[in-house]
């Protein structure tokens, strides 16, 4: 299991487009991915789940990946987030 925290630096927050991009990327992996914000946890492969997080600008998200390809998941997400979200 790998865990890593990111801060949302997209001014509009995790709106439909970035949320959809995350889901589309994660669907390619076997691992289960959980996204946690404060005390709320959602399935990283669920668009509705991510939207219900209402992760606005500045909020902190913890990604927890577990499975055979968990390292690839984290690499992919780190790469993905580096554009708009700074890793802590």
């Amino acid at each position: 299991m790998i865990e890593r925290t990111f801060t949302v630096l997209n001014k509009m927050g995790l709106h439909a487009r970035p949320a959809a991009a995350i889901v589309t990327a994660l669907q390619k992996f076997e691992s289960d991915v959980i996204i946690r914000k404060d005390d709320q946890e959602v399935d990283g492969k669920s668009i509705m789940g991510i939207l219900t997080l209402t992760a606005e600008y500045g909020s902190k998200l913890t990604l927890i990946a577990e499975g055979a390809d968990e390292q690839s998941v984290m690499d992919n997400m780190t790469q993905f987030f580096s554009d708009q979200v700074h890793e802590e």
Binding site: A20, K45, G49
Partner: peptide
């Protein structure tokens, strides 16, 4: 439609 497809595939 892409948004609809994602909802369709949503684990929820």
């Amino acid at each position: 439609i892409e948004a609809y497809l994602l909802i369709l595939e949503d684990p929820l």
